[in-house]
Design a protein around this nucleic acid. Structure first.
Lengths: 230, 230
DNA sequence: TAGCAACCGGATTGCCCTATCCAGTTTTGG
DNA sequence: CCAAAACTGGATAGGGCAATCCGGTTGCTA
């Protein structure tokens, strides 16, 4: 790979041989399907099966699951970031905020894998994390504006959004296909709590560092980052 | 014990040989520890290891995980039911309701296994389900009274409690030991939404049947019931 | 079109889990 | 104290997953 520059999403670098590139795309497409259906717990092997490629091909192209996750969810994360942008464009910040939360949660409900992605952090997935951070910054801005209108409670913290996603993931994972809209009710309840007038104080938000640690959890989604990487 | 009657929790029936009974208790104790730490996903094998008994002994005593879950969590579930009773004794139903929700969620946070139990149903675990149903009935009563005071929103449905537990499980599972109190904030937000005056309508509750199906999910906790049994 | 590097994917290794079998051990009761 | 019944736990079969190895195949380029 040329030591120069390389876009996050441009394959660039060493152009793969045509058949390799074709397989790469088959894998990503298969992973999109499998992750959406089974969550990030899906095994690499099952993705390979779905893609119709050998296991080795899988690992050759994506030595760690984090890299596969990066490739698969970058577009979802982009859509997520776009939702923030759209919310910022709303003349009514509170309305934008509410719409954003609903949209983001709907994305979780529509894709089990993405639900995991939103509550987990993958230091190894560069493009993904970059996109997430961008979205996060927009969110902070959005929250600030919504507070300024006086409709979003003052003690709302950006980290609350993460908590909302965790709670939503819990509902979505538990209800699954059996009650596919149950999450809407919970999210609506949460949103109503976010609106002023505040009914009472809240327990403190978790420390940012603690929450980050929580999002690194190797547990459920089981996507251990490689040793450390660059 | 006379072969006639048998309490749900009395070993009764065919009194086990003393060493067998000892092992049974070791297994239950080990399972309590392991499930609390790892959730219901913990393998039977890991419980056997922790208990220091052979795998065969494990399966002889508890042919299915549901039976083990039944034995292990019956006391937690009893405590859960007691919390409802305590709440019903509160002269202020709304206060009782709030305290109950907080207590129940705290129990989830303190025991990953129980967190799973509260969002999953195990038809094979008789005593457990019996206890759960009892608690549920008390809850319906409690909710009715709380509504009567005018402080609990009219459109609150008993099934919302299940949703609360699912959401809470999501937060607890995601934050784990890293941010052990994060769930409190989410639960506080939900409770504030439950209090009147209502801020707006909510999406409909999931169908009871659908929610039951959701709680049967073979997925996460991975405790498939035996074929059918008695 | 020929040769070579890149690439493919099945086979394999190593680990963990569920579940059953059976030879050896322990408890119990006469 | 002895034998039968109850009980034990290692061994084992059968399945899944992560990850690596290697003989065969394919695309690329001269």
């Amino acid at each position: 790979m040329t030591p120069g520059d390389q876009h996050p999403d441009a394959p660039a670098a060493q152009p793969l041989r045509s058949d390799a590139e074709r397989n790469r795309e088959r894998i990503v497409a298969a992973a999109r399907t499998v992750f959406a259906r089974d969550g990030l717990n899906a095994s690499m092997a099952s993705v390979a099966r779905e893609a119709g490629v050998g296991i080795a091909t899988m690992f050759r192209r994506f030595p760690s699951k984090a890299e596969l996750v990066d490739a698969v969810f970058i577009d979802r994360m982009t859509a997520y970031a776009d939702a923030v942008t759209a919310a910022l464009d709303d003349p009514d910040p509170w309305h934008g905020f509410v719409g954003y939360v609903e949209t983001a949660c709907a994305m979780q409900a529509a894709d089990y894998g993405f639900a995991d992605v939103l509550t987990t952090t993958f230091p190894a997935a560069k493009a993904l994390e970059h996109c997430r951070n961008e979205a996060y910054e927009g969110m902070v801005e959005l929250i600030g504006r919504a507070k300024a209108t006086g409709r979003l409670r003052e003690d709302f913290d950006p980290s609350d959004l993460v908590l909302v996603h965790m709670a939503n993931a819990g509902v979505v994972n538990a209800t699954g296909g059996a009650a596919p809209d149950a999450w809407r009710r919970v999210v609506a309840l949460l949103i109503q709590s976010f609106e002023t007038p505040t009914r009472g104080p809240l327990p403190a938000s978790p420390e940012h560092e603690a929450l980050y640690q929580a999002m690194l959890r190797p547990g459920p989604p089981g996507v251990a980052a490689p040793e450390s990487g660059d």
